[in-house]
């Protein structure tokens, strides 16, 4: 049967990059345990958080994500021994970079969710979704997608604005 859900004005798009061994299994567990969590999240499975290149996160934002979650095994539990340790350093650096260019880090969440932590998965996803919902859509990267250098634009909005202001 159809479950009645609260209607929101804004449904954020959340992309979750997860490792297949821990978090994906954790999300699976949440599903098989019939736990409810926001359907806003689109899960992409990777072999390991070590494989999740920062460029994927950029790409997600560019293609319309309002929030991104990266999740993998707890430190010490990596299927490949140290993938998540490397990822941890890389993401720490990447966060600093994003912050420096003016991206709100509240839209980007990292977490460790093990195969047994279906409940934690639900918590993490719910929290991120609700946080991003209150923040509203992420306009920065999406706007950038539609911008052109002035010479390639047939009629730039800036020009239009200029005409309007002068006219």
């Amino acid at each position: 049967m159809h479950v009645e859900v609260t209607k929101h004005d804004f449904e954020p798009k959340i992309v979750a990059f997860v490792c297949t061994w821990c978090t994906y299994a954790g999300a699976d567990l949440a599903g098989t345990s019939r736990m409810q969590y926001p359907p806003n999240v689109r899960v992409l499975k990777f072999p390991c958080t070590g494989r999740i290149d920062p460029v994927f996160i950029l790409r997600a934002f560019q293609k319309g994500a309002d929030g991104v979650l990266v999740s993998g095994c707890h430190p010490g539990d990596c299927h490949y021994m140290a993938g998540n340790f490397h990822a941890r350093r890389r993401f720490a650096a990447f966060r600093a970079l994003l912050d420096f260019v003016g991206v709100d880090l509240n839209r980007l969440q990292f977490s460790w969710v093990s195969a047994a932590e279906g409940g934690k998965w639900v918590d993490v996803v719910t929290e991120l979704t609700e946080r991003v919902r209150t923040m509203g859509p992420m306009p920065e990267f999406k706007e950038l997608e539609h911008e052109e250098q002035w010479s390639g634009a047939i009629n730039t909005p800036e020009l239009k604005e200029a005409y309007d202001s002068i006219g």
């Binding site: 920062p54 460029v55 950029l58 560019q62 970079l97 260019v101 990267f141 950038l144 911008e147 052109e148």
Partner: peptide, 13 residues
């Protein structure tokens, strides 16, 4: 602009 932003971030990274 979109690709440029991505390029410079990727390069910095």
């Amino acid at each position: 602009p979109a690709g440029n932003m991505a390029w410079h971030l990727v390069r910095a990274m």
